[in-house]
Design a protein around this nucleic acid. Structure first.
Length: 896
DNA sequence: TCCTCCCGCCAAGCA
DNA sequence: TGCTTGGCGGGAGGA
């Protein structure tokens, strides 16, 4: 009957009753002990016992049939039915049932008996988990705690204890249960779930999982063109993660984690894996994660040992286990993403949207005026509390990293503060690195600094505000959309805030808009920030890497800045690319930083990112001064001209650098490279930074009322008005007041070669010189240029961005202007994935851009939460709220 | 054939 | 030392 040979298969043993004593397993025996009754009764009749596992399973109650399963599910749905069933079960003579079964078993042929056994599916972990969950209320009253006795559970559910551990471990990772003692757990239900998810999301963001995913996808894509790179990938994966060995378990305050023997196995704990898996969903957009990617990331965080494919397979197995439980919890749902290489199993987050951690945010919010830094750190620590604090081991990344974070933040802050001309890290580094006007930064009006700071601060304040009242802050048609909208400002982690959403004051409608840049975009943008250049932006190098088969991937990725530079090196964007050239102080410092980091060390880069992120985040926070300067100034006409001039300089610089970049990088690209660039992670289609500057996301800031200056001044401290006043924003995105109805799209050669789709109002030019400059890209014929546009035209012509005689119109005309080679990338569906990538704001192919329907900047909720969009003629889409969604890509996901 | 994932061996670690 | 936990991977069932 069963395969003989060596070790009997698991399944064999399971059904094996004829080969008794041979299999006396420790655990099974124990279990047998727990169900002694059954065994003792049976043993005499049947063969000497022996197969602990079997007796235990076959015995109880109803046989495992679809019917019984149905009953179980029904009972699960109804406590009454359940209890009734249980009572009946108890009343039944279990021994009789057992005997009957065993007798039946004995009389049946092997095959027949096997058939009588529950099918594999009926024994699935998912179903088991359902049954397990059915035993406890989702929200148990705090007064009456539900205790879980593993022995009872295993007995009642007729499963091996081992299986229960799998379930419990995953539940534990979500803090739905916690271990009290041996064999004993406490059921918390979903009470802690929101908190847990928030914490996980935060930690996930801190860990830059999005970037890791991007990198993995990038490598995958590379493999399509270079099969030999596979080995490299593995090496890269392992080496790059050599310092990621530290895995942490995110613990919630008040929910103590006391897993036994976890110390020795924590790194590979199913709990940790589960949490990380969840994090991937929470930080990614859309919230779809393929098993493969998840496994790779998990492996990446393990030791170097995890190189072979068996490890990968093991991870996949574990992920299936976890996924089954999460599916039972309805947190995820299995789907498939179609790729060129076939369908890939993936899971889509179907759980609750994770809003900003209100607790955490509140903390920060309330502390903003007192001790921002410490608060921020504190909150982070709270979110990612280390395990076993009593042991004080350093095994918990969160702890150590947070500590480092604090230090790095302080250091950066000091540096920044000491640099009077460094308004905001982002812009500071940018400007400083500009070759044309190396000292321009010193001329940059302090007011601009305040504006920028105010912006950053505004973002943070918005975040807090959103956290406090998300719905109010960003009204959305659907609750599920809230996260999407609030995320940029609220949920959006510090890392994103560094990119700070650009606020678009809308004096007329009273509604401001923020152009929120997706994390990936943020990276691009923030490359100006020293820290960001260290980020392993995948897309970038891909282009240049393609031909470098022999290179070790990790090296390649880490060498973006160096090795790629000579090629097309894009991702790094301005800062990374120009640093070496300009050798400005800032850039040098940045370069040093980046170089100091081991190229193969992903975690270090991550940390570096965190530093910069936190720095940028902390910057505004630390700055106690209300953004009054910026807000006030923005409204003062007297200053407009000055600002225009200053910004014009900035623009000029940017443009100059942009030109350089374009000529260097964009033009030379061949089709292959372009193709490579098209590679976009399946679930996280993030355009190659070097190629495109992804679209922005206009977020109506309806909660921000436009008031007069006086009003704002009074509100500024509350961080409400600052948003509106930050009209000029950073040169990166440009900001201009405009009515939603007048929003139009133009391609903005935002830094380098990355065109940015951004909305412009007819009068934007005059109001926002920076944007106006961007408009130069459009071939619109101009109408009477105003003074500012004239100046811009002059400068732009001067630097060769526009031909002599061409004038940038004061009233920009919406246009999609293809930008050289970049445009080709767009229409391309991700290299390896069929999750079709939309292109990042798409330049050249006006027709294509719109093809992408699913904006991955959309709400984290993914497709489900997609707001109603109305397509604009230019391919952009607008939500019912006026939020502009620029199509990014189409995700083909098939649900099972 | 590949995808899923059940099953239980066996070692770490706790009581 | 016995027992609990849980990492791990073989291999079976299903698609």
């Amino acid at each position: 009957m069963r395969p003989a040979g060596g070790e009997m298969g698991a399944g064999d043993k399971e059904n094996e009753h004829s080969e008794p004593c041979k299999n006396v397993l420790k655990t099974p025996l124990k279990q047998a002990a727990t169900s002694q009754l059954v065994l003792t009764e049976r043993q005499p009749d049947c063969q000497p016992l022996t197969t602990p596992p079997k007796p235990k399973e076959t015995p109880l109650a109803d046989p495992w049939t679809p019917t019984s399963n149905l009953k179980m599910l029904i009972s699960a749905a109804s406590p009454e039915i359940r209890s009734r069933e249980q009572r009946r079960q108890l009343s039944d003579s279990s021994s009789e049932v057992l005997q009957t079964k065993h007798c039946l078993q004995e009389h049946l042929l092997g095959d027949e008996y096997e058939k009588s056994q529950p099918s594999r599916k009926e024994k699935s972990l998912g179903l088991l988990c359902h049954k397990f969950l059915a035993r406890y209320p989702d929200y148990p009253s705090p007064s009456q705690k539900s205790y879980i006795c593993l022995d009872e559970v295993t007995e009642e559910l007729h499963v091996e204890r081992r299986r229960i551990y799998d379930i419990v471990n995953v539940l534990e990772s979500l803090h739905m249960v916690s271990r009290l003692a041996r064999n004993r757990y406490v059921w918390h239900g979903s009470h802690n779930l929101p908190q847990t998810l928030q914490a996980l999301k935060k930690v996930g963001e801190e860990n830059k999982y999005i970037q890791q995913i991007q990198m993995i996808k990038k490598r995958e894509y590379e493999h399509e063109f270079d099969p030999d790179a596979e080995r490299n990938e593995e090496m890269a994966s392992s080496s790059g993660s050599s310092e990621q060995s530290e895995m942490s378990f995110v613990e919630l305050p008040g929910v103590e984690f006391r897993a036994a023997s976890v110390n020795g196995r924590k790194y590979k704990s199913l709990r940790v894996m589960s949490q990380k898996f969840v994090m991937l969903f929470l930080v990614s957009t859309p919230q779809i994660v393929s098993l493969e990617v998840a496994a790779k990331i998990l492996i990446g965080e393990d030791q170097l040992e995890d190189l072979d494919k068996s490890k990968f397979k093991t991870k996949i197995r574990r992920l299936y286990d976890i996924a089954n439980v999460l599916s039972s919890l309805k947190l995820i749902k299995k789907v498939h993403v179609t790729e060129e290489r076939g369908r890939k199993p993936a899971f889509k987050w179907t759980g609750p949207e994770v809003l900003p951690n209100t607790q955490d945010t509140k903390l920060e919010a309330t502390s903003t005026t007192s001790s921002p830094i410490s608060e921020s750190v504190t909150s982070k620590e709270q979110c990612s509390k280390a395990l076993f604090p009593s042991k004080g081991k350093q095994n918990f990344t969160r702890h150590s990293s947070l500590i480092k974070l604090v230090k790095s933040i302080e250091n950066d802050r000091r540096k920044i503060q000491s640099a009077p001309t460094t308004p905001v890290k982002i812009s500071a580094s940018t400007y400083q690195s500009l070759p044309v006007f190396p000292n321009t930064i010193s001329q940059f009006p302090a007011i601009t600094k305040h504006q920028l700071e105010g912006q950053a601060k505004t973002a943070e304040e918005m975040q807090m505000k959103c956290a406090l009242s998300p719905a109010e802050a960003v009204p959305t048609p659907e609750p599920s959309q809230q996260p999407a909208l609030s995320q940029p400002l609220g949920v959006c982690p510090a890392s994103h805030s560094s990119v700070s959403p650009v606020i678009l004051p809308q004096p007329q409608s009273g509604v401001s808009y923020a152009i929120y840049l997706h994390p990936s975009q943020a990276h691009t943008v923030t490359t100006y920030s020293p820290g960001f250049m260290l980020q392993p932006l995948p897309c970038a190098n891909v282009t240049g890497i393609k031909s470098n088969n022999s290179k070790v991937l990790n090296k390649i990725t880490t060498e973006e800045g160096d090795t790629q530079r000579g090629l097309d090196e894009p991702p790094k964007s301005l800062a990374a690319e120009e640093r070496p050239e300009t050798k400005s102080e800032t850039s040098q410092r940045c370069l040093k930083r980046s170089q100091a980091l081991p190229e193969t060390n992903l975690i270090k880069r991550r940390k570096s990112d965190e530093e910069s992120l936190d720095t940028s985040l902390g910057e505004p926070t630390k700055n106690e001064k209300p953004p009054s300067n910026s807000s006030q100034t923005n409204h003062e006409m007297d200053n407009v001209q000055e600002e225009i001039q200053n910004e014009t300089k900035t623009v000029d610089q940017n443009m100059a650098s942009c030109c350089d970049q374009c000529t260097k990088e964009t033009i030379p690209e061949d089709e292959d490279k372009i193709k490579t660039k098209q590679d976009i992670p399946v679930a996280f289609a993030i355009p190659a930074p070097e190629t495109f500057f992804p679209s922005g996301y206009l977020i109506p800031l309806t909660h921000c009322t436009h008031g007069n200056k006086a009003e704002c001044s009074t509100k500024e401290k509350a961080g409400v008005c600052s948003l509106q006043h930050t009209a000029y924003s950073s040169p990166i995105t440009g900001v201009i007041p405009m009515p939603a109805s007048e929003l139009k799209t133009v391609n903005i050669p935002a830094f380098h070669i990355t065109p940015l789709n951004i909305m412009l109002s007819p009068n934007s030019i005059a109001a926002a010189p920076v944007l106006s400059n961007s408009c130069l890209n459009s071939s619109s014929t101009s109408s009477a240029p105003n003074p500012s546009s004239s100046a811009l035209n002059f400068m732009l012509q001067h630097i060769g961005l526009i031909p002599a005689g061409v004038q940038i119109p004061a009233n920009p005309v919406l246009q999609h202007v293809p930008i050289s080679s970049q445009s080709e990338n767009i229409s391309h569906s991700s290299g390896s994935t069929n999750v079709q990538e939309g292109k990042p704001s798409a330049p050249k192919e006006p027709q294509e851009p719109q093809a992408a329907t699913e904006n991955f900047f959309r709400t984290p909720g993914g497709p489900n939460t997609e707001p109603a969009l109305s397509a604009n003629s230019d391919g952009t889409q607008r939500t019912s709220q006026g939020t502009l969604c620029i199509p990014q890509r189409k995700l083909e996901v098939s649900e099972d």
